[in-house]
């Protein structure tokens, strides 16, 4: 409901986005239906990104069905069942730029480099994850069906 309202009120129509150095993508509704890369993502590699607290950072905020990982976060919903709740396209937009759906979310936009303030020198101009990593994570999340 809130989501529909937000999308309905959005001033920017769905369209192509191309940022410096990033692959272009097209947002349709609340999803990015087409993969960012030509090769399909790998769920095994995606799982490793999700578990990695320097790369994915996911478990800082989320809990998830990765039983070997201790100290999971409680700032965000459990990732279990994410693949049943959302399509791959919806998951992709939530990773790439979830701020389009909820401007106040604390979840970082993982594939965006503009509109940021005082980014540290080591991170400047780089998205949090590469296009390949995004596809790997989407492939992993899609396997979380219950």
């Amino acid at each position: 409901m809130a989501l529909a309202l937000l999308l309905g009120a959005s001033a920017t129509p769905p369209g192509a986005v191309a940022e410096a150095g990033l692959r272009p993508y097209v947002v349709e509704g609340d999803a990015i239906p087409a993969p960012l890369t030509g090769t399909p993502g790998d769920a095994g590699r995606g799982r490793a990104v999700v578990a990695d607290r320097q790369r994915g950072l996911c478990l800082l905020c989320h809990a998830g069905p990765l039983p070997e990982e201790r100290f999971q976060g409680t700032l965000a919903p459990d990732l279990a069942g994410a693949g049943a709740r959302w399509s791959e396209g919806q998951l992709r937009l939530r990773l790439v730029d979830g701020r389009r759906l909820n401007p106040d979310t604390i979840m970082p936009s993982y594939y965006r480099v503009d509109g940021l303030t005082r980014v540290g020198p080591g991170w400047r101009g780089k998205p949090v994850l590469t296009a390949e990593e995004i596809e790997d994570v989407v492939a992993f999340l899609a396997t979380l069906r219950d």
């Binding site: 604390i106 509109g115 303030t117 005082r118 780089k126």
Partner: peptide, 12 residues
Amino acid sequence: ERLGQLDLSCAQ
């Protein structure tokens, strides 16, 4: 103010 690559404010 939101800061950095992770775009988070102290208040958040």
